[in-house]
Design a protein around this nucleic acid. Structure first.
Lengths: 218, 218
DNA sequence: AATTAAATTTAGACAAAACTAAAAATTTGT
DNA sequence: ACAAATTTTTAGTTTTGTCTAAATTTAATT
């Protein structure tokens, strides 16, 4: 597998092509900041190798082998992210770019040892699940903060937007994964929320709330 | 810098092209298991970029910038080797292949943090010096065991041959860096040595002795 | 010094991965 | 249902790094 092939497989997975829902050439091109014609070329190549289903004009979806491959790459990406944060004191807005490179290192032993060093983490620094060696991963029941009814209690467990801008904003406001959260009130006119997070009170916009995942207390 | 460019720079350095001693096209090709014509192409490109001196038919040597670049790559390679051995329990015969990949990861912060995590090691698992951030490195006065006079005491500080075969052989015979060594006797007819290493007595061939570096006790 | 041998470079080709521009298929709108 | 708009594919180029085969330069030998 070349680096480029791996990036295509990963992108198709993220766009939902794992459930044999075919993904449009255009969508892949846009996501990867490339041209549709390049996607067509690669689709043929990956189909040839048995990694994707592809019929002309019908879009692309991953085969079982394709899904396994995608999960293996995502596993590597997310484990490296945890490594960077936990062992090298990177902040969560710095890890993506480096992990994009590290995920392509070819060594089964390396990633298994990293996994072990980190004590087999189940989630990455943004709250996304880390697939195990055999491709299984936890699906945590979580909801967008913006979808949660008023006066609810929960824990912040993930972010939807993982852009450095958003993550740095959260840092600045002391919003971090693991924080307890209570929704005090919601403004009607702009959907902004008054919340209590780890004691302190905060007022956050709908934009923010709709990019934060919480797990409700049971 | 592409990966390929980096590999050429590194190879030229290792062949001695750092002291503006020009290296033959053929020598580079052989070392890299490629063809001389490919080397010529790359030599032009690297000269264009100011990384090497190159005149037709006259061989290639590194410029100051080329040397700096080479040292930076070697620094990364050797730090990753230490990381693999010290933090992930790789054995010294397994690290080269993986480090060959890791050395091309582009992130200044990453390698500096790895350096810090390892407590700024000065030598890699094979006893080779690790250049600092600014390109300086220790030159330890060491000699090949085969060149050392009889009845001398020293410490094993490095290997010349770093092939897995040789390294595994050393493991099997409990020969490791840091071991104290004393030369008891030398057989005239085959230059083989009777040595004492960490207590135990050993009989080793000239082949072995000429690939082990020792530092003599002062 | 001339000739042979060896090393090096040139020229032309190829594969991978991308692109542009044009053609073809599909989807949409009325 | 049919024309228009959109999406997708094809065909032909480009770039990077490699190769082979032929030509050229340098080195070695007699």
């Amino acid at each position: 597998m070349t680096r480029s092939e791996e990036n295509y497989i990963k992108t198709i997975f993220h766009l939902g092509g794992s459930d044999s829902v075919p993904i449009a050439t255009n969508a892949i091109a846009e996501q990867m900041e490339t041209k549709p014609s390049s996607v067509t070329d690669m689709a043929k190549k990956l189909a040839e190798k048995g990694l994707v289903h592809y019929k002309k004009y019908q879009g692309v979806s991953l085969t079982d082998i394709g899904v396994k491959t995608a999960l293996s790459i995502i596993r590597k990406h997310r484990l490296w992210e945890v490594f960077l944060v936990k062992k090298l004191d990177f902040s969560w807005d710095e890890v993506h770019e480096v992990a994009e490179q590290l995920e392509h290192i070819k060594s089964e032993k390396l990633i298994d040892k990293i996994d072990e060093l980190l004590d087999f983490p189940k989630f990455d620094p943004h709250g996304d699940p880390i697939p195990s060696k055999d491709g299984k991963f936890m699906i945590r029941d979580k909801q967008l903060l913006s979808d949660v009814p008023i006066h609810t209690d929960g824990v912040c467990v993930g972010v939807k937007d993982t852009s450095p801008t958003f993550l740095k904003f959260l840092d600045k406001n002391n919003i971090a994964l693991g924080n307890t959260i209570r929704i005090l009130d919601k403004e009607e006119f702009d959907q902004s929320l008054h919340i209590q997070m780890d004691g302190k009170e905060l007022h956050i916009s709908h934009q923010i709330a709709s990019n934060l995942y919480v797990k409700l207390n049971d």
